[in-house]
Design a protein around this nucleic acid. Structure first.
Length: 503
RNA sequence: GGUCCUGUGGCCGAGUGGCUAGGCAGAGCUCUGCAAAAGCUUCUACAGCGGUUCGAAUCCGCUCGGGACCUCCA
């Protein structure tokens, strides 16, 4: 069995994963900025790294999964204005910053639960770690890689690059950018005159009077800069060097590059061994993002309440949609694609439900159909290798889909129950459960286990069966059609039974 | 302008130098009182041109198209 490999953005190639401490993994993922409601694009990293988390645990690792909440404002530069994003929005909505932050944090948590993402081990907030950030900045200043200017503190990228480049940690090691180019092309920004070089980035910003979020610091009242929170919190909870750092590709530069520089100064190491980046969700080929005015918020996505949506899509449909693509490929949104995912998931889930109902006798040792046995066993045996190959969830799902006709055929009696050995049947049940439920985190969405509804429908199905036996099709069709219009679909099974499904 | 990624059939998407990806949609057939579901079969592919090779969607080059990052961004 091939060992688990991840594509490491740092080395730009797949590498076999080995944890720094045997049996334990430290995982840090950049969390949301809670200045607004999460949209479809945000769903991807959190689902992707939920799979990473689940899979590592499945493999037996004890994982500490840290995902921060960015609740202290980052900057928003538009033209000449430079305002704290959160305080700006807060002014518009006439809310206290922390009230706004709480509101969107709650919404974020709601969305994560809807997606069935396991909550991280630690979910630290930026505002809760101001002290740690200040200490880190002081250390960087003391080492000579940052300077103060008018109450703000900037990281000296050029000096860092000169010194740490010689130690194989140049600025640009992650993103592949060349600093000289940066110096030429960085856009003109506010406070630029405070910086020694255009590429320098803020560690601490002096708070203008209108800023609501502000903290005391050795440099006066202000607030932390763009990148220091992740360095401070990942160091605090995972140490100077940990296993995996994840996030969206758009964070690779400058955010993660800056994190590396900050941590390298303080801890003399690149903070993480593996850097994993998920690709973007696009809409009409364009990245979903505020600046493109093409975002679909998660609440809109679920409800269908958005002009470009022809219907709502359930959280599990979205999750399945995301899993059907490799995480490093762009994924293009369209109603057609989501509907395909919805139907595909239903088909998969019905087969899975059916599979769980099969009794495995335990005494079939010789397969009745050797070709089929070999086929099923081959598919099942290959799943782990696909998963280990940089989490090819798309390929795993394709493999599981190959077994769906087998399950359905057994159910319909088209394939004998003795066609497969008991061990293969058991393996199939186990693998479906392991992948769909444990690793992919899919779950039943429509509650069919309502006892009272089941009793009523059982009765109705009985009545209809009697009507059909009398060839009273007017009655049987009336029952079926009316139930269908009420959202309940009856299906006459091959064995004479009736099953029902909420649609 | 700089750095990088990408172009697969109606749609979404996986992919190893030679072996059917898969899903959705379409068509035919089977089962069925009809329907739904299901099963079987099946049509549309690897942007274009050239090169390497016994053989390339898969490697190389060029052309054209799309995108990301360079600025907060998942």
């Amino acid at each position: 069995m091939p060992a688990l490999q991840f594509y490491n953005s740092l080395s730009r190639q797949k590498e076999v994963f080995q944890s720094l401490i045997p049996g334990k993994v430290g995982l840090y993922v950049c969390g949301p900025t809670v200045s607004g409601e999460s949209h479809l694009g945000h769903a991807r990293p959190f689902i992707t790294f939920d799979i990473v988390y689940r899979y590592l645990r499945h493999l037996g690792y004890q994982v500490r999964y840290v995902r921060n909440i960015t609740d202290a404002g980052h900057f928003e530069e538009e033209g000449r204005e430079s305002e704290d994003k959160i305080s700006k929005k807060a002014a518009l909505e006439k809310l206290e910053p922390m009230e706004l932050v709480q509101k969107y944090t709650n919404l974020f948590h709601w969305a994560m639960r809807e997606f069935n993402n396991i909550e991280p081990s630690i979910e630290p907030t930026a505002t809760g770690h101001i002290v740690e950030q200040i200490v880190m900045i002081q250390k960087i200043i003391a080492d000579g890689y940052a300077y103060e200017a008018n109450g703000s503190v900037y990281f000296d990228v050029e000096k860092y690059h000169r010194h740490f480049g010689a130690r194989n940690m140049p600025y640009g090691i992650l993103s592949g950018r060349v600093l000289d180019d940066q110096l030429e092309t960085t856009r003109e920004l506010e406070s630029q005159e405070e910086k020694r070089n255009k590429a320098d980035f803020a560690l601490w910003k002096h708070a203008a009077p209108e800023h609501i979020m502000r903290w005391e610091s050795p440099w006066g009242e202000g607030f932390p800069g763009w990148h220091i929170e992740c360095s401070a919190m990942s160091t605090k909870y995972l140490g100077d060097e940990f296993d995996i750092h994840g996030g969206g590709m758009d964070l690779q530069f400058p955010h993660h590059e800056c994190e590396i520089a900050q941590s390298a100064v303080c801890n003399h190491k690149i903070p993480a061994r593996f850097w994993l980046h998920n690709n973007m969700i696009t809409i009409n080929g364009r990245k979903m993002g505020k600046s493109y005015n093409n975002v679909i918020k998660l609440s809109e996505l679920f409800s269908g309440n958005h002009e470009i949506l022809t219907q709502g899509y359930s959280p599990m449909t979205v999750r399945f949609f995301i899993l059907q693509t490799h995480y490093r490929s762009t994924l293009d949104f369209s109603n057609e694609a989501l509907q395909a995912a919805e139907r595909g998931l239903r088909r998969m889930w019905e087969a899975f439900t059916q599979l769980n109902k099969f009794e495995v006798s335990g005494d079939v040792v010789t397969a009745g159909d050797l070709d089929l046995e070999a086929h099923c066993f081959g598919v099942l045996s290959g799943l782990e290798a696909d998963m280990n190959d940089d989490l090819n969830t798309a390929k795993v799902l394709a493999g599981l889909f190959e077994l769906v006709p087998v399950i359905n055929s057994i159910k319909d009696g088209l394939i004998s129950k003795d066609a497969l050995t008991s061990s293969t049947m058991r393996m199939m049940k186990e693998m479906f459960n392991t992948y769909l439920v444990d690793i992919f985190g899919l779950k039943e969405e429509k509650k069919q286990d309502d006892q009272k509804l089941s009793a009523v429908l059982g009765l109705i199905a009985d009545i209809r069966r009697d009507a059909r036996a009398r060839k009273d099709y007017a009655t049987s069709d009336k029952i079926r059609n009316q139930l269908l219009s009420a959202g309940i679909q009856l299906k006459d099974e091959k064995d004479g039974g009736v099953s029902w499904e909420l649609v």
